[in-house]
Design a protein around this nucleic acid. Structure first.
Length: 451
DNA sequence: TTTTGAGTTGTTCGA
DNA sequence: GTCGAACAACTCAAA
C-alpha cells in the first residue's frame, strides 16, 4: 500500500504538539499544510486579533520549514484546487463547534466529498468536546457547578507529543498578511511564545491564582486566553500539568468555564446574538443620541469612573483586559448606562486578542443577567467600591489613567469627590451611580410585571 | 413524582 | 469599622 497525501486544514489549532487531527493526517502519508484566509473566519476581528493570528501563522510556517500554504477565498474552492494541484485525496481538520464553523464545515465537507475527497473532522479545541457531558436525565447542563463536577468526572485524554509529519507543499502560496495592530503592547504569537507563558505561569503564579487573579495590578492571571483562542496551546496540555492544590483547581475551573460556554453556545447557537433567558429579552435598553454619546465615552475610557476608564484603555492598548475589570466595565455599560449588552460585546470582540465568541458573549450575558446561571438582578457592581476593593494601592489606575496619578490612594478612586477639586483633563462622572442603580432595579421590576 | 439543596465573581443598611 | 441580614424568587440537578 502506498502512502496517501492529505491536506491538513489549519484553523484554530496553530500548533504541532498534542494535535490528534494533524497526527491522523500524518499517519496517512505526506501532508500539505494549508491555511485559508476566509473572511468569515475572522468574524468581527479588529486588527489586534488579526495581527496575533498572522504572527501565529508566521511562527507555524517557520516551525514546518516554510511549507505552509496560504490561500484566500472560499475554503471549499481553495481546498479542492489544492487537492487538484497536489494529488491529495483527503482533507483533515480539527472539528469546530461554533455557530459559523459548524455551518461552514458541513458545507465544505459536502462540496469536497462531491469532488471525491475524503473529509475528516477530528478532535476539538476543548478537553471535553461539546455534547459529551450531560445530566443524569440526559440533557445539557445549564448550571456551571454541576457541569464542572461532571466534566472532571468525565475526564480527558492525556496530551500527545509533537507530530512529525512529512510536509509537502509544492504549490503556490500567498504571503502571510502583515496586519498592524492598534494595540501597542501585544503578546508574542506562536506555539513557542505560548509555552513560555505556560511555563512562567505554572512555575509559580498558579499557586497564588486563587488570591491574585482578582488583583488587576498584580496581573496574576495566566495570559493564556489568546493561545487557547488560536490553539497554540490545547487545554489538555494545561490540565495535564495541574495538581490538587486549591489554587490549581480554581485555574482548572476557569478552563472549564471556557468549555461550559462552548457547550452552551453549541446547544443554543442563537445566543451569540440574543438573550439566553427568554424572560430577559424585553429588558428596556437605551438607544438614541444620548445613549450613543455615553457608549462612546465608555469606549474611549472617558466616563469619569477611574476603574472603568482604566479597563477600557487597557483593552484598546493591549487588546486584553483583566477579567475582574471586564466584569466592572460590562456591569457599568449595562446597569449604569443601560446600553444593550450586545454593543459592548461587539466592541470587546473588535479589540480583544483573545476574543472567543462563546466566552465573550456568555460572559456579557452573565453580567447583564440574561444568561445561564445569571447574576441576580440586585447584584450591580459599584465601580468605585470595586476599585477600592481590588486596586487598593491604585497601581492599575495610575498606569492607565495618568491624569489622576497624582491623587492619593484615598482620593484617586473617586476624583470628583476630592476636596482639592477635580483634576484638569479628566471628566467628571458621566452618570450618578446610585440613581442609575435604582433605575436598573426599576426596569427589572417593570419587566417582571410582564411575566 | 416529589423533595431538597444549591446557585462565580455584590451592595447597602442598620445594629 | 465590622458584621449579618436583606435583597426574591426561580430553576436546576440529583436524590
Amino acid at each position: 500500500m502506498w502512502a496517501m497525501t492529505s491536506i491538513f486544514w489549519f484553523r484554530r489549532d496553530l500548533r504541532l504538539t498534542d494535535h490528534p487531527a494533524l497526527a491522523a493526517a500524518a499517519a496517512e502519508g505526506p501532508v500539505v499544510p494549508v491555511f485559508v484566509n476566509d473572511d468569515r473566519l475572522r468574524g468581527p476581528s479588529g486588527p489586534n486579533r488579526l495581527a496575533f493570528l498572522q504572527g501565529c501563522l508566521t511562527a507555524l510556517d517557520a516551525d514546518i520549514g516554510g511549507h505552509l500554504v496560504v490561500r484566500s477565498g472560499d475554503p471549499a474552492t481553495v481546498l479542492a484546487a489544492i487537492a487538484d494541484e497536489t494529488g491529495a485525496d483527503a482533507v483533515y481538520a480539527t472539528d469546530d463547534f461554533g455557530p459559523y464553523g459548524r455551518q461552514r464545515d458541513d458545507r465544505v465537507g459536502e462540496a469536497l466529498a462531491a469532488a471525491g475527497l475524503a473529509v475528516h473532522y477530528r478532535d476539538s479545541p476543548y478537553a471535553v468536546p461539546p455534547n459529551s457531558v450531560v445530566t443524569g436525565g440526559g440533557t445539557p447542563y445549564k448550571v456551571f457547578t454541576p457541569f464542572f463536577r461532571a466534566w472532571k468526572a468525565h475526564g480527558w485524554p492525556e496530551p500527545s507529543g509533537r507530530v512529525d509529519a512529512q510536509w509537502t507543499a509544492d504549490v503556490a502560496s500567498e504571503p502571510i498578511d502583515v496586519v498592524e495592530p492598534t494595540a501597542s503592547d501585544m503578546p508574542a504569537p506562536g506555539e513557542r511564545a505560548a509555552w513560555e507563558r505556560v511555563e512562567a505561569f505554572l512555575d509559580g503564579p498558579v499557586f497564588d491564582y486563587e488570591k491574585t487573579r482578582n488583583d488587576p495590578s498584580a496581573d496574576g492571571t495566566s495570559r493564556l486566553s489568546p493561545d487557547l483562542k488560536w490553539g497554540t496551546v490545547h487545554p489538555r496540555q494545561l490540565l495535564d500539568r495541574l495538581g490538587p492544590d486549591p489554587s490549581e483547581d480554581v485555574f482548572r475551573s476557569e478552563i472549564c468555564w471556557r468549555e461550559f460556554y462552548a457547550e452552551v453556545l453549541f446547544q443554543r447557537p442563537e445566543t451569540a446574538r440574543s438573550s439566553y433567558a427568554p424572560k430577559m429579552a424585553n429588558m428596556e435598553v437605551d438607544d438614541g443620541s444620548l445613549a450613543d454619546e455615553r457608549f462612546d465615552a465608555w469606549c474611549r475610557g472617558m466616563t469619569g469612573f477611574p476603574m472603568v476608564d482604566a479597563g477600557m484603555r487597557q483593552l484598546v492598548a493591549e487588546g486584553w483586559m483583566h477579567n475582574r475589570v471586564r466584569m466592572i466595565v460590562a456591569s457599568f455599560l449595562v446597569k449604569d448606562l443601560h446600553v444593550d449588552w450586545t454593543r459592548g460585546a461587539r466592541f470587546f470582540m473588535e479589540h480583544l486578542v483573545d476574543g472567543d465568541l462563546a466566552s465573550n458573549q456568555h460572559g456579557w450575558q452573565w453580567v447583564a443577567g440574561t444568561g445561564t446561571d445569571a447574576s441576580p438582578y440586585f447584584r450591580i457592581f459599584n465601580p468605585t467600591s470595586q476599585s477600592r476593593k481590588f486596586d487598593p494601592t491604585a497601581d492599575y489606575l495610575r498606569k492607565w489613567v495618568p491624569e489622576i496619578a497624582h491623587l492619593s490612594n484615598k482620593a484617586i478612586h473617586e476624583p470628583s469627590a476630592d476636596p482639592a477639586g477635580a483634576p484638569a483633563g479628566y471628566p467628571g462622572p458621566l452618570v450618578d451611580h446610585a440613581s442609575e442603580r435604582l433605575e436598573s432595579l426599576d426596569r427589572y421590576a417593570r419587566l417582571k410585571e410582564q411575566w
